[in-house]
């Protein structure tokens, strides 16, 4: 564990807490893509299959439980909660995210580190996470005014994998036994690059203290 990895995990945790805070306190999920939330729940379900079979550290296990629990409770809020679900704008959240799942699964079957069920599912989760934010980014461009909490949520979600990239660079030079992880590295890089224009507009909106508006 290094500071970049810890910062990445804390940033990821913050993004989830910001989203839960928004949904739980103001009972609204306006501007949040349910499809991205569904994709993320699938990412965690596929990635943490080994949560009960492969104990690595208490920290990892606790964090996996938090990410699994929060992502599924966000789904519950957005689909079942009588007040919250009314604020979900399904007419705007139209990205056909099913078209993301199958290609990622096929790619995981073709390109993986070991052809076992758990390893293919883990690889699938890596590919899927790289594109999971797309429905949310498309929704942001459609909804004119992005509220602060939604903007912070997306920013933190994008930043966490960026910090992981620094963690991988650090580990590559600092840990002699750390081997290459091309699948994780390339997917993580593509994932972070997808946020590039969002980061640009978000940082400008914070700097100029104006509402975040992505160009149509």
């Amino acid at each position: 564990m290094n500071i970049f990895r810890l910062a990445g995990d804390m940033t990821h945790l913050m993004s989830v807490l910001v989203l839960l805070l928004k949904i739980h306190t103001i009972k609204s999920c306006a501007g949040i893509s349910l499809k991205t939330q569904e994709l993320y729940a699938l990412v965690f379900a596929a990635r943490y299959l080994d949560i009960f079979t492969h104990y690595y550290s208490l920290y990892n296990t606790v964090m996996k439980l938090i990410f699994l629990g929060s992502s599924f409770s966000i789904l519950w809020y957005m689909k079942r909660h009588k007040v919250v679900r009314r604020s979900y704008d399904k007419d705007q959240d139209t990205f056909r995210h099913h078209f993301l799942v199958l290609p990622c699964l096929v790619l995981a079957l073709l390109i993986n580190e070991k052809f076992t069920f758990k390893e293919v599912m883990w690889t699938f989760s890596i590919y899927l996470e790289a594109v999971a934010i797309l429905p949310q980014l498309v929704l942001l461009q459609r909804t004119r005014n992005v509220d602060n909490l939604t903007g912070q949520y997306v920013f933190l979600l994008g930043a966490y994998r960026g910090l992981y990239i620094i963690n991988w660079i650090y580990r590559y030079f600092a840990e002699p036994t750390y081997s290459t992880h091309w699948i994780t590295w390339i997917s993580g890089l593509l994932q972070t690059l997808l946020y590039a224009d969002f980061f640009y507009y978000y940082i400008n909106s914070v700097k100029n203290n104006v509402r975040l508006q992505l160009p149509a």
Binding site: D9, H54, K114, S179
Partner: peptide
């Protein structure tokens, strides 16, 4: 195989 087992990140 060590790297497969070592999915030590989240």
């Amino acid at each position: 195989d060590s790297k497969v087992e070592k999915h030590d990140e989240l």
